[in-house]
Computed example of a mutant assay.
Amino acid sequence: MDDLAILIPCYNEGITIGKVVRDCINDTKDLHCKVNIYVYDNNSNDNTVEEALKNGATVRHEYQQGKGNVIRRMFREIDAKCYILIDGDDTYPTEDIPKMYEMVINKNVDMVVGDRLSSSYFEENKRPFHNLGNRLVRGSINTLFKSNIRDIMTGYRAFSYQFVKAYPVLSKGFEIETDMSIFAIENNMAISNMIINYRDRPEGSQSKLNTYSDGFRVLRRIFNLYRDYHPMRFFTIISALLFIIAGIVFVPEVLIPYLKTGLVEKMPTLVVCIFLGIAGIVSWYSGLVLDSVLQKEKREFEFRLQLIREKFNENHIS
Rank of each mutant, 00 (worst) to 15 (best):
G66Y: 10
L263W: 04
N187Q: 12
Q306G: 11
I244L: 14
A184F: 06
F174M: 01
N106L: 14
D291G: 07
F216T: 14
M1N: 07
C273N: 03
N197V: 07
D214A: 07
P252R: 04
N188W: 06
K172P: 00
N45Q: 12
K298D: 13
P268G: 06
I185W: 04
D79T: 04
E177W: 08
T16M: 08
N47R: 11
N188A: 09
I152H: 00
G247C: 08
I84D: 02
V164A: 12
K165Y: 08
Y258K: 08
E203A: 15
E123I: 07
Y63K: 10
P231Y: 09
I6K: 03
N131K: 15
I97T: 06
L263H: 11
P168R: 01
F163W: 13
R227Q: 14
L294H: 00
I191S: 09
F145T: 04
W284K: 14
T28A: 09
L307D: 13
I6W: 02
F223P: 04
L31A: 10
F223A: 14
N315S: 09
N12V: 02
I248S: 04
E203K: 12
V164M: 08
S192I: 08
F159N: 00
D89I: 05
P98H: 11
N125I: 05
A57D: 14
D228E: 15
